[in-house]
Write a protein that binds this DNA or RNA. Sequence first.
DNA 1: TGTACATCAGTGAACGCGCGTTCACTGATGTAC
DNA 2: TGTACATCAGTGAACGCGCGTTCACTGATGTAC
Lengths: 208, 208
Amino acid sequence: MSHTFGIRQAQKQKTRQALLDAALGLLEEQSLSSLGLREVTRAVGVAPTAFYRHFRSTADLGVALVEEALGSLHPMIRTTVTTADTGEERITRAVELIAGHVNAQPAHVRFIARERHGGVQPVREAIREQLGRFAEEVKAELAKDAQAKGWSDDDLLMLSHLYVDQMLITASLFLESLEASPEERERISRRATHQMRLISIGRHHWLD
Amino acid sequence: MSHTFGIRQAQKQKTRQALLDAALGLLEEQSLSSLGLREVTRAVGVAPTAFYRHFRSTADLGVALVEEALGSLHPMIRTTVTTADTGEERITRAVELIAGHVNAQPAHVRFIARERHGGVQPVREAIREQLGRFAEEVKAELAKDAQAKGWSDDDLLMLSHLYVDQMLITASLFLESLEASPEERERISRRATHQMRLISIGRHHWLD
DNA sequence: TGTACATCAGTGAACGCGCGTTCACTGATGTAC
DNA sequence: TGTACATCAGTGAACGCGCGTTCACTGATGTAC
C-alpha cells in the first residue's frame, strides 16, 4: 500500500485535532482576529513552533474550523427540508433540529455566527461559500416540490436564502439563551416557529 | 451659566471624536477584540495615555460607537415604516433607504454587523439592546395599521423582529457588494425586495 | 479689568510581558534491501 | 527478519517588537475676588 495510515500520520492527525479543539474553546470568548498561536499551543501542551507543522496561521486554522463546523451539516439540512410531511410538521422539526444542534455543538455555532462578518477575510469567504451551498441545496429540494410550479429560479433561490438566514438567526438566538430558563427557550422556539410559518404562508400565496 | 461650553470642553470633545473616527476606520479590517489602544492614538496623533482621558478601554469605546452608529437611526426607521403608501412602495423605499445608508455610512454598518456576534460582551449587549428598541418601534408602528387587527402582541413583535433582522441581512449584503458591479447590486436589491414582499404576503394571510 | 490659584487634557519616560517567527536539533517512525 | 539510512512531527532557545498601564509632569483654560 502507498500509505496505510501509520503511527506517525495518526499522531499528527491527533495533534491537529487537539489544536482545532483548543482553538474552538478559546474562541468562545474572543474573535479569531485576536486569537494567538501561542495561546492555542499552550492550551494543547505543545511547543509554539509545533503549530506551523499543521497550519500557516490562525486564519488558516479558522478556515479548517469552518469546514469542521459546516461541512457535516449538508446531509442534515437536506433530509430536514426533504421529509414530506405537512409543512407545519416540517417547521416544527426544523426548529427542533436547530435547537438540538446548538445544544450539541454550541462552540461551532458561535464560531460561525461570530466569524461570518468577522475580521478575517478568508474565513468570511469560507463561511459565505458554505452558506451559499446550503441555499443551493435547499433550493434544489424546494424545486422538487409541487408547490414550486410557476416559480422562477431566482425566486426559488431568494426563498432558500430567506430560509437559510432565518435558520442562522434562530440558531444564534438559541445560543444566547443557552443558560436561560426553559420558559425563555420555549418563547424563542415559538417565535422562530411562527416566523418560519409566516414565511411559508408567504410562499403559498406568492403567485396569487 | 454653570457651563457654557468652554474652549477646554470643545477641544476635549474634538479629540474624543477623533478617537472614535480613527477606531471606526481601523475596524474596517479587524474586530474590536483585536483593536489596540495604541493603534488608535497613533492614528489620531496623540499620546497613548491620552486615550484614558476619554475611555476606560477599547470595549468602552466600542459601546460609544454602537450609540453613534445606531442611536440616530431611530427616527429614520420610524418614518420609513410609518409612511402610508401602498405596501409595495414602502418596501421599495425601505430597500433604497438601506442601500443609501450603507453607501453613506459603510463603516458604521460593518461595525454593527461584525460586533453583533463579536467577542466583546458589553458591545454585543449594547447592539442587542438597540436592535430590540428598533423592533419595539417597528411593532408600535405596525400596531397602528388596520392590518394589525386580530394580531396578538407576541405575533406583532415576532413580525417586527423578522423585518429588523431582514433589514440587517440586506444591509450586510449591500456592504459586501460595495465594490461590485451595478448589475450585482441591482440583483441584491431585487432579491431583498422580493424577500420583503414575501414576508408582507405572509403577513396578509397570517390570520386566514 | 487684573491677579492668583485650581483644574485637567494631553505628555513622555518607563515597566514588564507575551507575541510571531527563525533556526538547528532530536528521536521515533518509515522504507529499502 | 535484521540493518542502515531517510523522513519529519515536535522541541527549545533566541530575537526583536508592540502592547497596556503607571506615574509625575506641563501649560493652557477656567474661576474667584
